[in-house]
Amino acid sequence: MPAATHHLCVLVVDDHESTAQILAEYLRGLGYDAFPATSGEQALALADEHRPECVLLDLHMPGMNGVELGRQLRRKFRGEVTLIAMTGEDAQAMVYKLMLAICDHVITKPVDLDQLKRVLSVADPDG
Rank of each mutant, 00 (worst) to 15 (best):
R75M: 06
T19D: 12
E25A: 13
A91T: 10
S121R: 12
A45N: 10
K117N: 15
L98C: 13
R71V: 03
D15W: 02
A4P: 14
S18Y: 10
P125T: 01
K109E: 06
L116E: 07
A101M: 09
H16G: 11
M94F: 08
C9D: 09
E17P: 13
M86E: 09
G29C: 12
H16R: 09
M86A: 14
D124P: 10
L44F: 00
L46R: 10
G63S: 15
M94A: 11
F77V: 00
C9G: 08
A85Q: 00
I107Y: 03
L57C: 10
I84D: 00
G66L: 02
G66H: 01
P36M: 10
H105S: 02
D126G: 10
M1Y: 12
Q42L: 04
A43D: 03
H50M: 11
R71S: 06
H50E: 11
M61D: 01
P36N: 09
V81Q: 01
E25F: 05
D126P: 13
H7Q: 15
P2F: 09
L83P: 00
A34M: 11
I22V: 15
L57H: 01
A85K: 04
D114H: 11
H60F: 06
R51P: 13
L44S: 00
L8C: 14
L44I: 00
D48P: 02
A91K: 15
H7V: 14
A20D: 03
G88W: 01
A85P: 00
D126R: 15
F35C: 01
Y96S: 12
T38L: 01
E25M: 13
F77T: 01
K117L: 11
D33K: 13
E53Q: 14
L113Q: 13
P125N: 08
T38A: 11
A34L: 11
L11C: 06
T38Q: 09
Y32I: 06
R74D: 00
G63T: 07
D14T: 08
Q92S: 11
V95W: 03
L46K: 09
L113C: 08
D15G: 08
L46N: 08
H7I: 13
L73D: 04
A45Q: 12
E68Y: 09
D112I: 07
P36L: 10
C103D: 00
E25P: 14
G40Y: 04
Q115W: 06
D15T: 04
Q72T: 05
V111T: 05
M94S: 10
M86S: 09
D58E: 13
D33L: 13
T82D: 01
V81L: 02
H60P: 08
N65K: 06
A45T: 15
L23Y: 02
A45W: 05
V67E: 10
K109G: 04
D14L: 11
V106R: 01
E53T: 04
Y26P: 08
D90Y: 06
D58R: 02
I102W: 04
A24V: 06
L120M: 03
D114I: 13
T38Y: 00
P110E: 06
M1H: 15
A123V: 01
L98N: 11
R78V: 05
P52Y: 07
D112W: 05
G63H: 10
D90E: 13
A34F: 07
